[in-house]
Amino acid sequence: MKTKSDFPNLNERKPDGVKDDGTPYRVLVVDDSVFVTKQITQILASEGFEVVATAADGEEALNTYKDKYPNIDLVTMDITMPKMDGVTCLEKIMEFDKNAKVVMISALGKQELVKRSLLLGAKNYIVKPLDRKKVLERVVTSLE
């Protein structure tokens, strides 16, 4: 069995998804598309983030957030969803916790909603189709 000492990682780097204390950032992924949810989960997990919950619509997301509060460090929020859309959900979450860190996931052509979200307190936005590098970059800057 190969151990770390056999192949020392010369460029050892703390993964972006891990806090200074060694525990991972806890993420709530909100998207009505299972495919996108999985994609985001994979991308985040690859950098050490821990997706602690997922939600398929705004209402569920809001309840989950409240349930787990304060054990969620970041939310990725799809904009178009059934029951409660992402922007409304964002608004509610911000009302509940003004320090919430939410990154919007938007399809092209929803500029207006993205702008509204940013003004409501979203930290950043990611445009679909998702690109691993960009997702990570924006999630990381949102956590600062």
Partner: peptide, 13 residues
């Protein structure tokens, strides 16, 4: 940027 029209507001925020 694919959503280049968002930037102005993003920076504003």
């Amino acid at each position: 940027n694919p959503m280049n029209s968002v930037g102005g507001i993003q920076v504003f925020a």
